[in-house]
Measured scan of single mutants.
Amino acid sequence: LRGKKKEELLKQLDDLKVELSQLRVAKVTGGAASKLSKIRVVRKSIARVLTVINQ
């Protein structure tokens, strides 16, 4: 992550946020259990990207 440019990080952040919103919709509509663990992974990925951006 640290080797990427800021523009790439921001694009990745947008993609992750879109994916997270889709997973939340799937959870509300009764999605599979595998998607519940994926939510945690995506949230941590967002946190990692934000950490690198803010450093």
Rank of each mutant, 00 (worst) to 15 (best):
residue 2 R to E: 05
residue 42 V to E: 00
residue 37 S to Q: 09
residue 54 N to E: 01
residue 27 K to C: 05
residue 35 K to P: 05
residue 12 Q to T: 14
residue 14 D to Q: 15
residue 1 L to W: 15
residue 55 Q to D: 10
residue 12 Q to C: 11
residue 4 K to M: 14
residue 22 Q to S: 06
residue 23 L to S: 13
residue 48 R to V: 00
residue 54 N to Y: 12
residue 9 L to Y: 02
residue 20 L to K: 04
residue 36 L to Q: 01
residue 42 V to Y: 06
residue 22 Q to T: 10
residue 55 Q to R: 06
residue 22 Q to F: 03
residue 41 V to G: 12
residue 5 K to Q: 01
residue 32 A to L: 15
residue 42 V to D: 02
residue 52 V to G: 09
residue 34 S to Y: 05
residue 1 L to Y: 13
residue 31 G to S: 14
residue 39 I to S: 01
residue 31 G to C: 13
residue 6 K to H: 00
residue 54 N to K: 13
residue 30 G to V: 14
residue 5 K to A: 12
residue 5 K to N: 07
residue 16 L to Q: 05
residue 29 T to V: 15
residue 52 V to E: 04
residue 39 I to M: 11
residue 42 V to P: 02
residue 23 L to W: 14
residue 25 V to Q: 06
residue 54 N to C: 12
residue 50 L to H: 04
residue 53 I to P: 00
residue 13 L to N: 03
residue 40 R to C: 13
residue 35 K to R: 08
residue 33 A to P: 01
residue 41 V to I: 10
residue 5 K to T: 07
residue 1 L to G: 13
residue 9 L to T: 02
residue 34 S to E: 10
residue 42 V to L: 08
residue 25 V to D: 04
residue 47 A to K: 09
residue 37 S to T: 11
residue 6 K to A: 07
residue 16 L to V: 01
residue 29 T to G: 07
residue 45 S to K: 14
residue 27 K to H: 04
residue 34 S to I: 11
residue 46 I to Q: 00
residue 10 L to N: 03
residue 8 E to H: 08
residue 54 N to P: 04
residue 26 A to D: 03
residue 31 G to N: 09
residue 45 S to P: 06
residue 46 I to S: 00
residue 17 K to I: 06
residue 35 K to Q: 12
residue 43 R to V: 10
residue 1 L to R: 03
residue 26 A to Q: 05
residue 13 L to Q: 02
residue 43 R to T: 12
residue 36 L to W: 07
residue 46 I to A: 02
residue 31 G to F: 15
residue 7 E to H: 11
residue 7 E to I: 12
residue 30 G to R: 15
residue 3 G to V: 07
residue 47 A to G: 09
residue 10 L to V: 05
residue 42 V to S: 06
residue 51 T to K: 10
residue 17 K to V: 10
residue 21 S to Q: 07
residue 50 L to V: 07
residue 17 K to H: 01
residue 23 L to A: 05
residue 27 K to T: 03
residue 1 L to T: 03
residue 26 A to W: 14
residue 7 E to V: 09
residue 16 L to G: 05
residue 36 L to P: 01
residue 27 K to Y: 02
residue 23 L to E: 04
residue 52 V to H: 06
residue 53 I to N: 00
residue 7 E to R: 12
residue 25 V to M: 12
residue 44 K to S: 08
residue 7 E to Y: 09
residue 33 A to V: 11
residue 14 D to P: 05
residue 19 E to S: 14
residue 49 V to H: 03
residue 43 R to Q: 08
residue 33 A to C: 12
residue 19 E to L: 14
residue 25 V to F: 09
residue 3 G to L: 09
residue 40 R to S: 09
residue 5 K to W: 15
residue 5 K to S: 07
residue 44 K to N: 02
residue 32 A to N: 03
residue 40 R to Y: 02
residue 49 V to K: 00
residue 22 Q to H: 08
residue 33 A to F: 14
residue 12 Q to N: 07
residue 54 N to I: 14
residue 20 L to H: 01
residue 2 R to G: 09
residue 44 K to L: 02
residue 16 L to C: 05
residue 40 R to M: 13
residue 37 S to H: 07
residue 54 N to Q: 08
residue 29 T to H: 06
residue 28 V to N: 03
residue 46 I to T: 00
residue 2 R to I: 15
residue 26 A to I: 11
residue 33 A to S: 06
residue 14 D to Y: 14
